[in-house]
């Protein structure tokens, strides 16, 4: 985190968001706000549009009516800047099996272009020390996800948008990720997350329930 002064200005607002897909209304007139130091957990049954909402907040999907603002400005109008300040992690971690853990992480963090020491430290933090130069094909599914999630350690983005990040992680992995999230929030960051997993360590959290009307 670069500083706590950002805490006041960090603010993601959604106004009156309605999204329709294939003649079906996914959600209607959503409005909410997340500021620095807060976590928003999006819950709802399968097919209720959680991933769609997250992609839309991340600025990847423009097929909706309403407005999303980051620090008071519409996200598409400040897009390249917004893209640097928020980290979006979809439900797949983009890990290529023929590549080693280091090579994968280097690509995942290409925008930050960290040095090899930083990459090694990040892999160590997800308990993959010793696997840096192992092709990911030889790692388990959970380990591969950890390679992908190691980018959370390197990223400087104050806003995290995470889609089902706990999938396929073991207890240690879940504990690590929870600790990362609470650390991020403790330092003034904001997190939007979809998960069936209840986050116990974070106190300042709110919940958004989708798919109530269906």
């Amino acid at each position: 985190m670069t500083g706590t002064s950002k805490t006041q200005t960090l603010c993601l607002n959604a106004y009156d968001i309605t999204c329709e897909r294939d003649d079906r209304v996914l959600f209607e007139r959503l409005a909410f706000q997340i500021t620095g130091g807060e976590l928003l957990q999006v819950v709802g049954p399968n097919g209720s549009g959680k991933t769609t909402l997250l992609r839309l907040l991340a600025g990847l999907n423009r097929e909706f009516s309403g407005e999303v603002r980051w620090k008071g400005r519409e996200i598409q109008s400040v897009y390249p800047e917004y893209a640097r300040e928020r980290l979006y992690q979809g439900h797949t971690v983009s890990v290529k099996k023929p590549l080693t853990a280091m090579e994968n992480l280097r690509w995942l963090c290409a925008m930050e272009s960290p040095g090899d020491e930083a990459l090694e430290a990040a892999l160590e933090s997800v308990s993959l020390a010793g696997y840096e130069y192992t092709p990911c094909a030889q790692l388990s599914a959970g380990q591969q996800r950890r390679v992908g999630l190691a980018r959370l350690v390197i990223s400087q983005a104050p806003l995290w948008i995470l889609d089902e990040p706990f999938t396929a992680l073991d207890h240690a992995g879940i504990a690590w990720l929870e600790q990362q999230i609470s650390h991020h929030i403790g330092h003034g960051g904001a997190v939007v997350i979809t998960s069936h997993h209840a986050l116990t360590e974070v106190s300042t959290q709110s919940e958004l329930v989708l798919g109530g009307g269906v």
């Binding site: 979809g90 797949t92 983009s94 995942l108």
Partner: peptide
């Protein structure tokens, strides 16, 4: 195909490039 399936494409899209 592989980039769509493993999310690399989404990551590129999210990077702002």
């Amino acid at each position: 195909r592989a980039d769509v399936e493993d999310g690399s494409l989404e990551l590129w899209h999210a990077s702002g490039e």
